[in-house]
Design a binder for these strands. Structure first.
Length: 446
RNA sequence: CGGGGUGUAGCGCAGCCUGGUAGCGCACCUGUUUUGGGAACAGGAGGUCGCGAGUUCGAAUCUCGCCGCCCCGACCA
């Protein structure tokens, strides 16, 4: 993409309403525009990141054997009356009436609707296990939205629902989600720690939240630092292997890690002093097992091998996709701006032309642009007639992990400069060598 | 929803107390010079002063009502 043809309305000054880094930087980098309290337009750069995260979530869900679909944002109130939540949910639910006077709501979550779909089409244990998910906009009418997309009213979320014939099967689904979530966050360059959590209004017995450590997090968290050393890496995982999946969960849930809601001071005291940490955390996902809470009242049953109708065991599993954009920035920024992890960056590299209009530098930039594109990478070429400082500041702000600087000085000796946004380290090398380096760097992130 | 604040050009703000033709910086447009870390000069364009009533010869400014947004708290993916 050529910057001169893109839409990137960056701000030099910080809008007054933004308090925390991610909100400030998303506004300044032209990623979002607030339309109402807690409701945002996603401008091209923000939208690109959102889509990247969405793709990662899809890939990892499918890898774990889950099945994608899409449910509507507007739901009939009657479904929620069946589960009893229409009355229970309170003011947070946005209620709407259509022209015929029918009660509807903008979905804050989809347990009722997925259960309705399930009961209409599944009646045998032979069709189980099944996990369906979608990634869709949700609405919760928060009393006080804040922190930009981290706590908006409208938000983009992956929510998945498992259907199993018994408790053991549902627990495997629970574990499978935990492992696939760990993979998902790792690919996004995040360390998200699973912590035993409260079940809240969705209800259930067994639940973990995933928290990203960051100073601006809304929850206080307590953990054994041993957990932050854990990494899945590129190990192969057979998601159908109950023991293997369960063993990984044990690995991740054994070190102490809890939010203030479930914190147990006595148990925490048994963690060796030097590994006892407390911090703030941003919740970026949650998994629940809630058994037959919805299947029973809504009649989602299957016949088991003995011909008995039994309510299915369910769980629901969410990842806050739009919130993750903010969380990633909270965990990856400096005074100059955002620093995208390679796996989620909106463009793989920025090309800065230091002498726009000079035939030689223009030509060198063009051929670099073509070479990177041919290598399957997506560069953002700053071809504006701006001075060097302005171009550097823009690149730093929008946080592309790699910057290629092309100027007449280097071209005299046939080199360009490759700079890491994260470390600030630069290396002079031939254009072809830079393309090769970037291809190699991104090989593990495509 | 309780407490506090705020609304003036795209963004950041001054002006309001003490009523009298609406200002500054950045961004934008034109031109010249510049060109490896947010350039300089000159010229220019851009405003229902959140909305509605009221007081007044006259309201951005005073009064009343409403709305939006932000912060703290309670609440929350």
């Amino acid at each position: 993409m050529r910057l001169s043809r893109y839409f990137l309305p960056v701000l030099k000054e910080t809008p007054a309403e933004a308090q925390i880094a991610s909100h400030r930087l998303m506004l300044r980098a032209g990623m979002i525009k607030q339309q109402q309290a807690g409701i945002y337009s996603w401008l091209p750069l923000g939208f690109k990141v959102l889509r990247k995260l969405e793709n990662i979530v899809h890939e990892e869900q499918i890898r774990a054997g889950h099945v994608p679909m899409l449910m509507p944002t507007l739901q009939p109130a009657d479904l929620w009356r069946e589960s009893g939540r229409y009355e229970d949910y309170g003011e947070e639910m946005l209620r709407i009436t259509d022209r015929h006077g029918r009660d509807m709501l903008y979905g804050p979550t989809n347990e009722e609707m997925i259960t309705d779909i399930f009961r209409a089409h599944v009646s045998s244990y032979k069709d189980l296990p099944l996990t369906l998910y979608h990634i869709q906009w949700k609405f919760r009418d928060e009393i006080r939205p804040r922190f930009g997309v981290m706590r908006g009213r409208e938000f983009f979320m992956k929510d998945g629902y498992n259907f199993d014939v018994d408790y053991a099967g549902a627990m495997h689904a629970y574990n499978r989600h935990m492992v696939s979530y760990l993979r998902t966050y790792e690919r996004m360059g995040l360390q998200a720690i699973p912590m035993r959590a409260d079940s809240g209004p969705i209800g259930g017995d067994n639940t973990h939240e995933f928290l990203v450590l960051a100073e601006t997090g809304e929850s206080e968290v307590f953990y054994d630092s041993a957990i932050t050393d854990l990494k899945l890496g590129d190990r192969e995982i057979d998601f159908d292997n109950w023991d293997e999946v369960s063993a990984i969960c044990t690995e991740w849930t054994t070190p102490y890690a809890r939010t203030d809601e479930t914190h147990d001071a006595a148990a925490f005291a048994e963690v060796p002093q030097d590994r006892r940490k407390s911090s703030r955390g941003i919740e970026v996902g949650q998994i629940f097992y809630f058994g037959t809470k919805y299947s029973e009242p809504m009649g989602a049953t299957v016949q088991d091998g003995d011909g008995n109708k039994v309510p299915v065991h369910m769980g629901s599993h969410g990842i806050g996709v739009s919130r993750l954009v903010g969380a990633i920035i909270e965990a990856n920024h400096d005074e100059g701006g955002i620093i995208w992890p390679e796996g989620v960056t909106p463009f793989h590299a920025g090309i800065v032309n230091l002498r726009q209009g000079d035939a030689e530098t223009d030509g060198a930039c063009e051929s670099l642009y073509k070479a990177l594109t041919a290598a399957g990478l997506e560069p953002l070429y700053d071809d504006r007639s701006e001075r060097a400082g302005a171009k550097f500041a823009t690149m730093d702000l929008i946080g592309l992990p790699w910057r290629i600087t092309v100027g007449p000085r280097g071209l005299k000796t046939g080199v360009i400069e490759l700079t890491s946004r994260r470390t600030g380290e630069s290396e002079e090398l031939a254009p072809e060598a830079a393309v090769a380096r970037l291809t190699e760097i991104y090989a593990g992130h495509m």
